[in-house]
Simulated scan of single mutants.
Amino acid sequence: MPEIILNGPEGRLEGRYQQSSTPNAPIALMLHPHPQHGGTMNNKVVYSLYQSFQRQGFSVLRFNFRGVGRSQGKFDRGEGELSDAAAALDWLQSWNQNAAQCWIAGFSFGAWIGMQLLMRRPEISGFISVAPPANVYDFSFLAPCPSSGLIIQGDQDTVVPQEAVGKLIQKLSHQRGIKIDYKVVPGASHFFNEHLDQLAEAVDQYLETAIPEAAAKARTTR
C-alpha cells in the first residue's frame, strides 16, 4: 500500500494508493470524516471502503485533507477540502488515463464533500456515501443528482439521524434516470464500530452488481 505525496492547493497532501493489476481498471477516491473531529484517511470506515473497492479490481486512493497528518494547510470549512478532493482526483486520473470508470466514496463529512465533487466532475460515474450528514449540511445542490449510487446508514446512528438521511433519499429517488440504493445496517452506530463486516458486505454486493465486469476481472486476478 504505497504512500504517496501529491500537490494540493495549499501544499502537499499525504495519501495511500493501490494500483490495480487489471489493465484500464476503474478508479475510486475515498474521502474521510471531519478533520476537526479526528477524521483521517486511516478511519476504519474509510479503510473498509478502500479495501472493498480494491477487492473489486479498482485502483484506489485515499488521502488526508489539508491540516491532517502530513498534509499541509489548515481546515477550511469544506471549501478548501473540496479543492483538495479535486486535486486528488486529478492525480488519480493522471495515473489512470484509460480508466474504465471513475467512482467516489466518502464517510460523514467526506460524503458531503464527495457529493459536491460529484456535481462538479461529470466523469464520476458512481458513488458510495456512508452516513451523509444531511442534518448538518445542505444537500440541496444535488438538483439533479448526476449519478446513481449507494447510501449506507446505521439505524443506531446518534450523530446523523436516520430520519435526516431518509429525507435525502426520498428527494434523490424522485429524479428520473437515477437509482439510489439505500442500505440500513441494523444495530450500527455512526462509526460502525461492531458492524464493519456488514458495511463491507453491503459495499461489496453493491459494487459486484454495479461493476460486474470489473468484479469478474478482480476475482480472476486474486
Rank of each mutant, 00 (worst) to 15 (best):
A111F: 05
M119N: 09
A99L: 12
G126H: 06
I104F: 06
I124C: 04
N98T: 15
S140R: 15
I128P: 00
I124F: 04
E123N: 10
F107N: 03
A143T: 12
P133R: 07
P144H: 09
S125M: 08
R121G: 04
N135H: 05
G110N: 02
G126C: 03
F139N: 06
N135A: 11
D138C: 08
F139R: 14
L118C: 03
W103N: 12
A105D: 12
I124R: 00
P122Y: 00
F141D: 03
P132A: 02
S125H: 03
Q101N: 11
G114I: 10
D138H: 00
V130T: 03
V136I: 13
G106N: 05
E123C: 08
N98R: 13
F109I: 14
M119D: 07
P133A: 09
A111I: 03
A111K: 12
N98W: 00
S129Q: 05
A99V: 00
A143N: 15
R121M: 09
C102A: 12
Q101R: 15
F141E: 07
W103I: 12
D138F: 05
W112A: 09
I104A: 03
I104T: 10
F141P: 08
V130E: 00
G126Y: 01
L118P: 09
S125G: 14
F141K: 13
C145S: 13
W103G: 09
P132M: 01
Q101F: 04
F109R: 07
E123Y: 02
V130A: 02
C102Q: 13
I128T: 05
Y137K: 01
R121F: 01
S140N: 10
M115S: 14
R121C: 11
A131T: 13
E123H: 00
P144W: 04
A105C: 11
L142T: 01
F127M: 05
Q116L: 08
I128R: 00
S140L: 04
A111T: 09
I104L: 10
F139E: 02
A131K: 01
A131C: 10
V130M: 06
F109P: 06
A105T: 14
L117R: 10
L118M: 12
L118G: 09
A134H: 00
A134Q: 00
Q116F: 01
N98P: 12
A105S: 14
V136Y: 05
S108T: 11
I113R: 00
P133C: 11
F127D: 11
C102Y: 02
I124N: 07
F109N: 04
A111P: 15
S108I: 10
A131P: 02
L117H: 09
Y137A: 08
F139V: 05
A143L: 06
L118S: 09
Q101T: 10
Q116W: 02
F107A: 05
A111Y: 06
A134L: 08
W112I: 08
Y137P: 05
M119A: 13
F141V: 14
G106P: 08
A134Y: 02
N98I: 14
A105P: 15
F107G: 04
A105W: 04
A111Q: 08
A100L: 13
G126I: 04
I104H: 06
P144F: 11
S108N: 06
N98E: 13
C102W: 04
L142A: 12
F127A: 06
L142Y: 01
